[in-house]
Simulated assay, not measured.
Amino acid sequence: MSAKLEEKGAHNLPLIILFGAILAILFAALFLFVYDQQLNALVDQQAESLADELAKTAFASISGGLHSINLPEYLGGSTYSISVKENSIFVVSILAGRRSGSSYSAVVNSTILVEDGKFSPGGQVYFMFNGDVIIASASPIEAKAEKVVKITPTEPPEFYHFSKQFPKEAAAIAAAYFNALGSHSGENVIVVSYVWENTDSILIKIRKGDETTINRAEGRENLTKVGAIENWWVVELLENVELKDNFSWISCPSPDNAYLTGWLYSPEAVLKHLRSRTWSQVSDNLIVAIPSDAKIQASAVTTNVSTYPVWRVQFGNYNIFYQMLPWWEVENTPGFVFQSSPELKPLI
């Protein structure tokens, strides 16, 4: 009996081994199939992600400055190319390897103009908004921004020297002047005189054509340090008030002359200049785009050197202080150019 059982078990052993081998082959085939599908899915995922990232970065460039993304060498091990179709669609095409012949696309709700279409894996794609189109290029795009002003080599006007002695007054006067000037740059705007109404506000008398008005500029002190700035005074409110002649008015040098000769920056020119550059946070290299609706206020900042009239540009939790007047090259003390919080640095 025992011998027969042993004989039967020995007879079944090859069948068991064969069954195990077939089962192992089936599992291996299933594993290879699943692994193959995962590799295909990886190509799909990376290609779709790249198309979306191209569209997202292109659209972000509308806010201003130069934007870019790095192109990977491969997508899931496959070679690829990118192109722009119909002036608004980014297409990622798989050339060889897994998913060869497949394409993936993403649409941008703006017109794309390709300046340098030699996009190559491992390179970069640059974007910049210009007028009403987004420029895409495989090489860095030269900013076509205007300079803030054209500084003349001659000695600065009287308002420049006035701003060095009376920076708060100069900031308030500049705020009132540009407010009165508005979009009518050809109209004659004359700042006649000014006077401190109290410790917080300055009255500025302005003649525009045949009309004389009084502007009140109310300021506020802020002790928050911003880079090298120890404290700052900002014009929070600018309004017209009834004519008051019971003050001892002080004559004012002409901001109009300073502006027309390139020695006084307008808030619009400063914002345009800042937006023409790409900025990143010093702490983490995060790209920061300055919005077109950033708040601009006339201010006076104090450093360990002196106090200067500046323009404050504010958006979100960002504070940028930019010079209101250029610094004359013959000065023997440093002037003020730029400070910010969080600390920013220009990339271009």
Rank of each mutant, 00 (worst) to 15 (best):
P326W: 12
S83M: 13
Q46T: 10
I229G: 03
I320M: 08
Y194L: 05
Q37W: 05
V114I: 15
D245I: 13
K4R: 14
T212G: 02
L238G: 06
A60L: 13
Q297K: 06
R275W: 00
E48H: 04
P253T: 04
I17C: 06
P157M: 06
A174Y: 06
S185C: 01
A3E: 14
Y259D: 01
A228I: 13
V305M: 05
L32Q: 04
V108Q: 00
I89G: 03
R207A: 09
G209N: 02
Q165V: 02
S88E: 14
V108E: 04
S120R: 13
I141G: 10
I320K: 04
H11V: 09
T79R: 02
W279I: 02
A172K: 01
G123C: 12
D44Y: 04
P14D: 02
V108K: 00
S251L: 01
V234Y: 00
T307M: 11
P167I: 07
G219A: 12
I348H: 03
A294M: 05
F33A: 09
G117R: 11
N215Q: 11
L18M: 07
A58E: 03
A176C: 14
L13N: 03
I135P: 03
A138V: 11
N332A: 13
A180R: 07
E115A: 15
A55Y: 00
S2L: 12
K164S: 08
L39E: 15
E239V: 10
N285Q: 14
A175P: 00
P334Q: 09
A174Q: 05
I25A: 08
G77L: 06
E239R: 12
L30F: 02
T302R: 09
A228W: 10
F338E: 06
A143I: 08
Y308V: 07
Q45M: 10
F321Y: 15
P72L: 08
A258T: 09
N40L: 06
T199M: 09
L325M: 12
V108S: 06
I62D: 08
I135T: 13
E221P: 01
V288E: 01
I16M: 05
V34M: 07
F27I: 03
S110H: 10
Y74S: 12
L113H: 14
Y194N: 12
S306C: 03
L264F: 11
D200H: 11
I202W: 02
H184E: 06
A58L: 06
L181E: 10
G20C: 02
Q323I: 03
K118E: 15
G64E: 03
L23H: 06
V313K: 00
E331S: 15
I296D: 00
E331R: 14
A55Q: 00
P253Y: 04
Y265S: 13
G101A: 01
F127Q: 12
E268C: 03
G219R: 11
Q314A: 14
L15Y: 07
S120P: 01
Q38M: 04
G227D: 14
D44F: 04
V107C: 09
K272N: 15
N332V: 14
F162Y: 13
G131Y: 13
N246S: 08
L260Y: 10
H11N: 08
V192L: 15
G316L: 12
